[in-house]
Amino acid sequence: MSSNAPPAAATAPAVISVRSLRKTYASGFEALKGIDLDIRRGEIFALLGPNGAGKTTLISIICGIVRATSGTVTVDSHDIVGGWRAARSQIGLVPQELTIDTFDTVRATAGFSRGLFGKRASPAHIEKVLRDLSLWDKRDSKVMTLSGGMKRRVLIAKALAHEPRILFLDEPTAGVDVELRRDMWDLVRALRASGVTIILTTHYIAEAEEMADRIGVVNRGELVVVEDKAELMRKLGRKQLILQLPARLEHIPDALAAYRLELSADGSELTYTYDTQSERTGITSLLDALAEAGIGFRDLRTQESSLEDIFVNLVRDQP
């Protein structure tokens, strides 16, 4: 795995420190193979990875739901085993599944969560959380009468009921409509503005791209890379120029070999990949060369590789 030590200039005190964390389940499945990770205070950190990569296991260990096989985790310098009470009281967790006691009312279940985390009842805070999540109108409704999206809001309300300093969102927008997604991101940004550290897992790359300050990619129990989002995009990002041809091309003329063009399977599109960071993109000379070779085009478009492409490359390249 790549070095996770942040550059000295960017060093902020780590609010969560994970060291050599391993987890082997009773079945023998090795879910985490030695994770080292520092989460900085106040950042939005996205854990990205395919299903089964170990994201939820990592979160579950930090939150106390799963035991680590070896390694250590500290939350705000409290060891999660030795100082479990202090560590856990800082954390709010929004689980992946819609697991919630459906017989309770919205307000009761939020109040329950607050009490469970050792906080004195505070109707005012619960009201604020429910209002922020547009749940106030539903405060006395039973959870079972709510839609899936509303239930997800209730889960977030439960996680925020005890005013956590660290919020974990495990696949927060799986099966969530656009409106809720937007509300949720507004809320996450507001939380970060108030100093809350947010760690979210997702396999929707667009989500990480939109929200995260830093991104960690997990694959097969290992942290493949941890990087500032902008840096990751810059380092690994590519741009492509796609030309639609008026007539099908059998093969790429040898004169154009230097441009490493790709011809689509049906021969109707040519793709040129270039590095946006380099001085010269080579587009002008390519177009000249094409004209010389007698190849015209009907239309052209460019596309930037998304985090998704970067991610797919990272995960695919791994042995």
């Binding site: 739901i65 479990w84 856990r88 954390i91 967790l93 689980p95 697991t99 469970l116 985390f117 050792g118």
Partner: peptide, 8 residues
Amino acid sequence: YELLSAPV
């Protein structure tokens, strides 16, 4: 999950 993750 909530019981297990709570400081209880």
